[in-house]
Design a protein around this nucleic acid. Sequence first.
DNA 1: GCACTTTTTAGACCAAGTCTAAACATTGAG
DNA 2: CTCAATGTTTAGACTTGGTCTAAAAAGTGC
Lengths: 142, 142
Amino acid sequence: MALQAGGVSDDVARRLRERGIRPSVQRVAIARVALASHRHPSADEVWEQVKERLPMVSRATVYNTLNRLVEEGLLRSFASAQGHTVFDPNTAPHHHLVDDATGTIYDLPWEALAVDGVDALEGFEVRDFQVVLHGRPTRRSR
Amino acid sequence: MALQAGGVSDDVARRLRERGIRPSVQRVAIARVALASHRHPSADEVWEQVKERLPMVSRATVYNTLNRLVEEGLLRSFASAQGHTVFDPNTAPHHHLVDDATGTIYDLPWEALAVDGVDALEGFEVRDFQVVLHGRPTRRSR
DNA sequence: GCACTTTTTAGACCAAGTCTAAACATTGAG
DNA sequence: CTCAATGTTTAGACTTGGTCTAAAAAGTGC
């Protein structure tokens, strides 16, 4: 197998080590794909991509690693509109816009929308929230 | 099998007929459960409840009927935080609060929150939206 | 009552995700 | 370096939510 360019994978390995995750070859490869992704991939989509470089990697390892990355706060996961779990390396607060025709999920910056009334909600203690919009992009360039 | 009280099921049958759905015994029983529910049940939860009155009803009929009710606008469906499809008879716009500890989903009235900035979004055409909050109820009485 | 259409049924099938037991890799002590 | 202990990965079995299919049953119109 080809050696990986030092810089990026070292950075990923460091981030894993910081969270107490031993940076095995497999875990670094999986984390590289998942942390760089901007398309909210499912676990199997990550698996496909990782297999291009590391053909013998097993599905269980990909699932276990992704779940571990979520536990350790390096990734977020949530259910897509189709009910499948997808992963998002953007752990900062942001909103989502779902194109129901394609299933694509777009990130919207937190500052793009203002939500008023959360503090005044009666009967609930709110930990966090986001706006989920349904619609479609009007430009191709996204 | 016991006859059903006329009033309610006649009402459900009428609503089905209005949408061009022939009100078979099974479909009325399924719709009665789903339309009366306030707990965002999954299809299998609806199936369990329907079977109490109509033990021979098949899973396929429940799934088909619920999907049909969604198509015809009598129900909404969406993916819960756990990634399972759940059904909601409240088709008016409203927000959701998810208790991650229990998976329970609470409805919040549309007027409880104000979202600002949707019209000003660049690059997207928005069809609808809602706020999804995570937290927990502070009162038992819900 | 009879041909036709619609609905329901049981169970096969499928896909996403988890679990398991065995193989493999890594580490630290001697 | 060798060994034992521990941690990780693997293939494949398993589970679960959901769909599909072919045949039986029910409903419709003449």
